[in-house]
Computed example of a mutant assay.
Amino acid sequence: MFVRAYLRASTSQQDASRARGALDTFAAERGFRIAARYMENESGTKLHRPELFRLLSDCEPGDVLLVEQVDRLSRLTSPDWRKLRAEIDAKQVRIVALDLPTSWNLAAPTDEFTNRLFAAVNNMMLDVLAAVARKDYEDRRRRQAEGTARAKAAGLYKGRPANTSRNAAIAAMLRDGRTWREIMNATGCSRTLLAKLSSAQRASVMPSTEI
């Protein structure tokens, strides 16, 4: 059995390695070693997360995927969560989360009956916490939208200021011929922002048609 830690933060401004100490302590207290750590800056609402799927690809049946909280693994919609769960189940990977005590025994060797019992309870609780994480995300987005609407109505909303240093770095990487995936991984920017900056860059270098 290998224990593989997954550490995720939503943006490049956040520290994906923040939870490393808590995961290392959890492992040390239970006498097992974390074999590998996979860190990335991607939204938990996205199913496409390269490091998470690299982790799953590296796993063998019975390996443990260790996370600080279930929401580090998923803030997915119900259909996307089912897809991720299907991938996890197909690999026979056991999820252990620090905020899910029912999962802790999955990291310790037990008899087959006890293991199946803990797995059944844990799977149910995983579904519950994944649903809660998604609802929390949707509630926060709704409150943000309501706050923005009130600010606009009052004439107080000025929008989010552009991150000029990051955008300049993205522009330089585009000029150097770096791929979009490389740029998004390096800067944490969204595909939408990258498309906008790429379009603006192409427009700035187009030859003028004026006479």
Rank of each mutant, 00 (worst) to 15 (best):
S78M: 12
P109Y: 00
D111S: 09
V67H: 05
T45W: 03
L55V: 03
T102W: 07
A27N: 10
R85Q: 10
V67D: 00
D89T: 09
W81D: 08
A86M: 07
L100W: 01
F26G: 14
Q69V: 10
K46G: 06
P61E: 00
E29R: 15
A28D: 14
L84M: 15
G62Q: 04
T110Q: 15
V70N: 07
V93R: 06
L47C: 09
A27K: 13
T25L: 15
M39E: 15
H48D: 15
P109K: 08
L47I: 08
L23I: 05
R94L: 12
N41P: 05
D58M: 07
D24R: 14
D71H: 08
D111N: 11
L84S: 05
E29Q: 15
H48M: 12
S78Y: 11
L84P: 08
F26H: 14
Q92E: 14
V93T: 07
R30S: 09
L65W: 04
S103C: 06
Y38C: 06
S57M: 10
V64S: 07
A107Q: 09
A90R: 15
I88L: 14
L73A: 01
E29S: 13
A36D: 11
V67P: 06
G44R: 04
A97M: 06
T77V: 10
E68S: 12
S57W: 01
Q69H: 13
A108D: 10
R85I: 02
I95H: 09
W104K: 11
L52S: 03
R49H: 00
E29M: 12
T110N: 14
C59Y: 01
R37C: 13
S78D: 10
R82L: 14
D89L: 06
S43L: 07
E68W: 11
E42P: 03
A86F: 02
L23S: 07
P61D: 01
N105Y: 04
R94P: 02
D58F: 02
M39P: 08
L76E: 00
R94Q: 11
Q92C: 05
L84C: 03
F32C: 13
W104L: 11
R30T: 05
R33G: 09
E29N: 14
Q69L: 10
R94S: 06
W81T: 06
A35H: 10
P79M: 11
A35V: 06
K91Y: 01
G44Q: 03
M39D: 14
W104A: 12
L106K: 04
G62L: 06
A28R: 15
H48R: 14
P101I: 08
E68C: 11
L66P: 07
L106I: 04
R94C: 04
S74G: 05
A35R: 12
E40T: 03
